[in-house]
Amino acid sequence: MTRQIKVLIIDDDEINNLICTKVIKDYNPEMLVESLTSSTKGLTHLEDLVKNNPEDLPDVILLDINMPTISGWDFIREYRKMMTAIESEKIKLFVLTSSQYYQDAELADQYREVQKLFTKPLTSDILKEIDAYLN
């Protein structure tokens, strides 16, 4: 039996979160998908899991970078402080953004936690690429 892949979407756009959830479920109905609408909620959620249910940590995080209050970049810096090396190795973090700025791709490359930057919308081709990081 293969284990279920857990995906956490962190994006302030609820419509995008619904679309991403549908694309993920169409790609693999067995994937567990959770979405949160702010970096703050994402950090609080992960902190709670680390303390109380580390086995429930997501396998994949899809993170938007342009969010109010705490940007995706700020999220990554806080995430880095919170996660142990083992936990952050387990979780594959991907930036999923509508940004077309090449500077964002360059910045993503500077964060060891970020596996890759993808441009919205999420597609089955992107999910195939993400799948390769999990195997």
Rank of each mutant, 00 (worst) to 15 (best):
K81D: 13
K120V: 01
M67P: 01
L36E: 00
E106G: 10
E113C: 03
Y111V: 05
Y79W: 05
E106S: 07
E34M: 11
D48H: 06
Q100A: 13
D109R: 15
I19R: 00
T84Y: 02
D26K: 02
D12M: 05
D48P: 00
T37V: 14
I5P: 07
M83S: 08
N28C: 04
L127H: 12
M31Q: 09
I61P: 00
K6N: 15
S35Q: 04
Y102F: 15
M82P: 07
L96S: 05
L36W: 02
F118P: 07
K41E: 13
S38K: 00
L117K: 01
L32Y: 15
Q4H: 08
L36C: 00
N135A: 09
M67T: 01
K81R: 04
L96G: 06
Y111A: 04
P121S: 08
R80A: 15
R3V: 12
K6M: 09
P58C: 08
I61D: 08
I126R: 09
K51C: 03
M83V: 12
T2W: 12
V95W: 14
E55S: 14
V50P: 00
C20Q: 03
V114F: 11
D48K: 00
Y79F: 09
Y27N: 02
M82R: 00
T21I: 04
F75L: 01
V50T: 00
D56I: 02
A105N: 10
N17D: 04
L127A: 12
E113I: 03
I130P: 01
R112S: 14
M1C: 11
D59L: 06
M31K: 07
D74R: 02
A132R: 08
Y102P: 12
N16D: 14
E55A: 14
L8W: 04
D125F: 14
K6T: 14
I130V: 06
L49F: 03
D64C: 01
S88T: 13
N16P: 03
D74C: 10
L57P: 04
K128A: 10
F75W: 02
N135M: 10
R3Y: 12
Y27S: 04
D59F: 09
T21W: 05
I9E: 07
S39H: 10
T2D: 07
S38V: 03
P58L: 09
E30C: 03
F75P: 01
H45A: 07
D13M: 04
T2P: 12
Q110V: 13
D11F: 01
L93C: 11
N52L: 00
S124M: 15
T123I: 02
L127P: 06
K51T: 05
V95D: 10
D12T: 02
E113Q: 11
I10G: 03
K51S: 09
V114W: 10
E106Q: 14
R112Q: 14
G72T: 12
R3A: 13
L107A: 14
L134S: 05
K90F: 14
V60F: 10
V50I: 00
D109L: 12
V60Q: 10
N66C: 12
K120S: 05
E30S: 12
K90L: 10
C20P: 06
L122I: 05
T21R: 11
Y133N: 04
A105S: 13
